[in-house]
Simulated scan of single mutants.
Amino acid sequence: MNATITRAAVTAIAGLAIIGDAFLLFVKPHQMQGQSAASGATLGASVSPDDSVGSSPDTNSGSVGSNNSNNSGTATSTLADGTYTSVASPNEYGEVQLQVTVKGGKITAINAVSYPNHTDRSQAISAQAIPELADRAISAQSSDIQFVSGATETSTAFANSLQDAINQALNQR
């Protein structure tokens, strides 16, 4: 009897945690975007000096950045300056975890802390997709980016991981 109650309690708590995560990942950012649109504020793109992905066979770390100078103006932002490390977002081939740097209220760099790289194929896909996704995200100043063809799982995990870091920056304001 006690084991059944314990399992039910754990299941209920896990369900609430999933609902809370979903709210932070999907609902709150859209509410914040709506508030920004209502006040006339938008997030502009910015520049990062780093443009590489690197990995050694025994680590999952790599550096990703963008040299995109598509600045959309002098609009204000709701992101707090700092460096934010996202939760690891799993996919079928591994997980994507990002470190996002915000300066001047804008995303200026995205570094891959971990990404799928345990096979030659996943290394090749990550080496192509992660820098492209980072470039698109810095340009868009959002996790709402076009996915890389042939890297749908990695793209989805990247967008989810990026949204978590953005949520952290939003919650610091």
Rank of each mutant, 00 (worst) to 15 (best):
129 A>I: 06
112 A>E: 09
100 V>F: 02
139 S>F: 07
112 A>L: 09
99 Q>R: 12
139 S>R: 15
136 R>K: 15
108 T>H: 02
118 H>T: 15
135 D>N: 15
129 A>G: 07
118 H>L: 09
138 I>S: 06
117 N>D: 14
118 H>R: 14
104 G>N: 10
127 A>W: 06
113 V>K: 08
123 Q>E: 12
138 I>A: 03
121 R>H: 07
112 A>N: 09
106 K>L: 08
120 D>W: 00
139 S>D: 15
127 A>Y: 11
102 V>I: 12
105 G>Q: 09
125 I>E: 00
121 R>S: 07
100 V>T: 11
111 N>V: 11
106 K>A: 12
101 T>L: 05
129 A>M: 03
134 A>Q: 08
127 A>H: 13
119 T>M: 08
128 Q>W: 07
135 D>I: 04
122 S>Y: 11
128 Q>E: 14
112 A>D: 03
132 E>N: 06
137 A>Q: 04
138 I>W: 03
119 T>H: 10
100 V>M: 06
132 E>F: 07
139 S>T: 14
103 K>L: 01
124 A>E: 15
107 I>V: 13
105 G>T: 10
126 S>K: 09
136 R>H: 03
120 D>I: 14
98 L>R: 08
106 K>I: 09
121 R>F: 15
114 S>V: 11
136 R>Q: 02
101 T>P: 00
138 I>D: 07
118 H>W: 11
101 T>G: 08
132 E>G: 02
99 Q>W: 07
140 A>N: 14
110 I>K: 06
129 A>Y: 04
131 P>Q: 10
104 G>K: 01
137 A>N: 06
